[in-house]
Design a protein around this nucleic acid. Structure first.
Lengths: 341, 341
DNA sequence: GCGCCGAACGATGACGGTAATGTGAAGGCC
DNA sequence: GGCCTTCACATTACCGTCATCGTTCGGCGC
């Protein structure tokens, strides 16, 4: 039974002290070649694996970073996780991915899990609008980087995407295609992102000399497919029906598309659709969705790098400056917005 | 700076010994009420959080279980993760979710990460067909439970779904609807699941007195949307085109649906489609997909429970018997298979 | 008054690994 | 030859927690 072989078992088997075994692992050049080989063979023979918990107890911090996202069902966050994971692994760290399910309570729960784990730091998309959980981070001195949603009143590092620009990209594209009345399936009105994207949309309309009355807002409770389906039904009921719709995310757009298909409305000829996030399923829809691509993988990677930089600076001499990175979105045009006219 | 307040800081602040603080946390009833209150207030004041690494160093094992899936981009695995997470949390454990991206190399890498973390155990869908990684688990005495794919030659715990039954469900449904020639977009021929689902499909045909020539197999390299699109194109080129198609998973089905839509083929009237997994996006497709539902959340939860049972038994008196749980799939009928005829 | 008991808390030794410090031998230098 | 350095390895002091084992002390029975 290899029931927990420790460093001292290896030491005994190789006829050296524990310190030498530790040196073989961590600073091999300080050990004579022959001894090193002997120790190494003992390690292999016994199947020794060093204990992370003991290491991190001594080091005072762990080699894991936390990632707390709103919804693992949304492929956008899966991409963020992918990016973070890659960047973390390049630095020899692991990532612990958790799902707050948009609940402040769950967020707090995971937060204390992270604190107990003495996680190196946390990347998070805050679910708690009150900022109380963020306050706890500060209190416990846990470095964090905000991803995608930047809470107001924070000066810490963040990575986000210019939502005003994104909204403008989408609507400018529709206006250029000749649309003059555009619906905006917006999601929960409280979200910054929803507001910013509307601002961008209005900007784009203004550029074309169109007033805000050209944007018909359809708020929804949630940002998922069912809400989109519902919004699509409402859209069909509008008098003077818009010829195009811009959705605050791709899940909503997929829901709208489904509602249109069910009602026999042809996309894009009867209604053009533009989504947001460019998740994998946007390209996979029956009518491939035009979407505003958020560089999700890049965001994850960048956030992880910022966190690493911050925690490096902490014990080194160099000082860390918090940074707020804002990335630019990109319009990916597909069939859903290319009407034949 | 609350830079790592330890138990002894609390002890000093409360004027008691470390043992008492430990007792307040772990066995509050052994401490006098007044003392307990004093210690508790010190804990709150200093913002003390116990160190998981020290705990697990002492306990010899951690409170985390690993979950290694093939593809976090597939919502099926997201559901598995959800189920596992819930069951683990009910037992006071955390889950570390990792993504092997179907690569044996990455799988091995995460495996050693888990070993270093002295993880309680691992739930995994093996990516390594050779079973070499599984062998390493055994060598290091790490309990594991196989999820969804049961490697041959393993006697350990596993949770899977009866793929023969699933294939039969799908094809029986199509045969009942009057289809006599059915395509099977099957995925990589090497996979057990692909074979089992075909077996089920053939069984269902046989029940109806139809021979294997009625099943037109279209293998693909991968199990994703792009592969489905490609298979859809090939399907269109078939002489004597089938009137229905059964896909080995929903991603393939979505790809087929997209190809049909692009070619102007109406689903379900010109072609009925049945997918597999019943991911969220199956219901969200333009034509909602009929699909064979795998109880993904249940599988995750059940696997976690099996693992917990196994690790409980290890130090208790009761012995653990490995179990191989096989769940039954369920057909979810939606519009994609309901032709008007 | 004496002895005993239990309650409440203190002291201590692992757990496994790391890094600073110690030690002994070989070898170089004046 | 005496002294110092260097190399190669051994020793050991932590890191934070927790369970075991002491210790103290008040109370109780006789």
């Amino acid at each position: 039974m290899s029931q927990s072989v420790g460093i001292k078992d290896v030491a005994r088997a190789a006829g050296v002290s524990v310190g030498t075994v530790s040196n073989v692992i961590n600073r091999p050049d300080t050990v004579a070649t022959e001894t090193r080989a002997r120790v190494q063979s003992a390690i292999d023979r016994l199947g020794y694996v060093r204990s992370e918990s003991a290491r991190q107890l001594r080091a005072g911090r762990s080699r894991i970073m936390g990632l707390l996202v709103l919804d693992m069902g949304n492929p956008f966050f899966v991409d963020v996780a992918r990016g973070a994971e890659r960047a973390a692994r390049d630095a020899g760290l692991g990532v612990m991915v958790c799902n707050s399910a948009q609940s402040a309570g769950e967020e707090a729960e995971y937060l204390s899990l992270f604190a107990e784990q003495r996680v190196r730091g946390v990347l998070l998309t805050p679910a708690d609008a009150t900022g109380r959980n963020i306050e706890t981070f500060r209190r416990h001195n846990i470095p964090f980087v905000l991803v995608d949603r930047v809470a107001e009143g924070t000066t810490e590092c963040s990575v986000s995407v210019d939502d005003v620009a994104g909204g403008a990209l989408a609507v400018r594209h529709l206006v250029d295609a000749g649309h003059r009345t555009i619906a905006y399936v917006s999601g929960p009105p409280g979200l910054n992102q929803v507001r910013d994207r509307r601002t961008g949309a209005l900007n784009a309309l203004a550029e074309a000399g169109l007033g805000p009355e050209c944007l018909r807002e359809l708020p929804t409770e949630r940002l998922d497919v069912a809400a989109g389906r519902d919004a699509g039904a409402r859209l069909l009921g509008l008098a003077d029906r818009p010829t195009a719709v811009f959705c605050a995310n791709d899940l909503l757009a997929l829901g709208v598309l489904q509602a249109m298909y069910a009602a026999g409305i042809t996309v894009p000829d009867d209604l053009a659709i533009v989504g947001y996030d460019d998740i994998e399923f946007a390209a996979a829809a029956a009518v491939p969705l035009t979407s505003v691509r958020q560089p999700a993988v890049t965001m994850g990677a960048l956030a992880a790098e910022l966190l690493l930089e911050e925690t490096e600076a902490e014990n080194g001499t160099k000082r860390h400056e918090h940074r707020r990175v804002v990335l630019q979105p990109e319009l990916v045009v597909r069939r859903s917005s290319l009407s034949a006219r």
